[in-house]
Nucleic acid binder design. Sequence first.
DNA 1: AGACATGTTGCTCA
DNA 2: ATGAGCAACATGTC
Length: 276
Amino acid sequence: MPELAEVEYHRQRWHRVALDQHIDSLQLKNASRLYRKLSPDALRAALTAATFTDSASAAKQMLFRFTCADRSTAWLGIHLGMTGELRVEPPAYAAAKHDHLILRTAKNTLVFSDPRMFGALQFHHGPDAPAWWTDIAPAVLSGEFTPSAVAAFLKRRARSPLKAVLLMQEKFPGIGNWMADEILWRSALHPRQPAGTLTPAEIKTLHRETRWVAREALRLIGASNSPTLPDPPKTWLFPHRWSDGGTCPKTKQPLQRATIGGRTTCWSPTHQKLHS
DNA sequence: AGACATGTTGCTCA
DNA sequence: ATGAGCAACATGTC
């Protein structure tokens, strides 16, 4: 389920219990496709007897930093793909079917599991953060995500439907299927509206609502320490969009669903209209 | 049984 | 060269 805020939620799960903890041992299922971007042997060698020293998330990517037994620095990247999650289990926890990486400290077992295996692990050993981390596009909540930057991007993708454009990580890092629908709904923009046809006022609205949804999702979901992942409130499109027969919380009219930009998309036809 | 799933990539075609 | 659309990946759930 992981987009921006869910990724942050999962990162904090590990971070809260494992910061400054010593990694006694690890288990990896290195036959899995999740290891396609790294050397499992290098990861195992570096993290055994390492200390968890920091973590961060950006877009849909997490970064975990370790200080190795020889005082060098190691960086573990985790992308949760479509079905990945991080969990914290008791010390005696036994690996289950879809657990692909397990780190054991004296107090806890840190588990990365991903049934569908669309996620990925990445690894880097060295003093500086790796390119796969530093190359992530500037966050939508950063000062670099400006209305004019959005305008330039929409112009470049002029013939693509807005829904497809919002899913492009190079400009909207961390936005996924449900956040894109939420942003368009709040912006009163039709998901099929070609990106090149927005008025300056609509671009400002899209920019503002992108930031609002990201900020609120991080506050309500990302920062939560609830044992289960919180859902956005009923006043959002989110709880109404998944099944047929949903009702728009703004207009009380039926929601519509179709595949746009290759993904299931939900919108409120009376509220989000196509224009020329 | 069959459709569908909160993601990314690599391929085709224009 | 650049952009748009779509199949593929692997497995579980409704």
